[in-house]
Write a protein that binds this DNA or RNA. Structure first.
Lengths: 136, 136
DNA sequence: CGGGATCCCGCGGGATACTG
DNA sequence: CAGTATCCCGCGGGATCCCG
């Protein structure tokens, strides 16, 4: 589309390494992003802190267990912080740490791409499905 | 860091939906990106087409089976294309489709972020590990 | 309310062997 | 070389119950 040379150049470095062996920084971070819920958590916290139950409502189809684990991992990585208010019943607030906030921009790029190109992906999948149906 | 208001605004839209129910476009794409090898494949193909065996060498710790599956999925989504040369032995070339090429830019953003902030993440993890060791 | 502890199941994905 | 076909195991993650 546009001239991607600088972008491609940035990839060449990785591709030449000879690529991305098991424990490289990039794969480390990418794996964490692959963990099904982490990305959604960051998105849900983008517009400000939320409590545990608010996060559950924000992402309805997550189990308490998985929500807890996802939040713990993100906290461990310094992406979010966790504040316990010693009220009764307890209230716990999660918010993006400064490090987490810096993720929003690249993440927004991916989201925007997903939103823009999802129709094309769907079309490609439908095409493929038709082909499969036809050749039987 | 910088003023993130426009970025945050883009998230608010999703967070308000009330968020990202099970089969929304964004999660659809994000799930695919989570599939452990797909992102690496796109990276490996960024600087030009590659053959099956070249991809194996580029990402040494992937099994043939998983490589095949990852490539099939990406092809199904219209991200890459697959060309078979009827030589003997056969040669198969994979390359980014136009749709796939448009992914490089947002993906490069994530890669750059990962590269830049990985030290901070490691530091946070190490800190956490020390705390755990201390409280025993 | 915000978890922890257990149990349990599915499937992602590795290892191996075979094929055109 | 570029796959397919099987087999099999681990663990991600849901469901359920409990607790301060």
């Amino acid at each position: 589309m546009t001239d991607n040379d600088p972008v491609i150049a940035s990839f060449k470095r990785w591709v030449a390494m000879p690529v991305v062996t098991a424990r490289c920084p990039v794969r480390d971070v990418l794996d964490r992003l692959g963990e099904k819920w982490t990305t959604l958590m960051i998105m849900a916290l983008a517009d400000g802190p939320k409590r545990f139950s608010e996060l559950r409502r924000a992402v309805p189809d997550i189990s308490k267990r998985s929500l807890t684990l996802a939040l713990r991992n993100l906290e461990e990585d310094g992406i979010i912080t966790r504040h316990v208010f010693p009220t009764n019943p307890p209230a716990v607030e999660y918010r993006l740490a400064p490090l987490g906030a810096t993720m929003l921009e690249p993440l927004a790029g991916m989201i925007a791409w997903a939103e823009r190109h999802h129709p094309e992906i769907q079309a490609a999948r439908d095409r493929r499905r038709k082909e499969l149906a036809a050749e039987v």
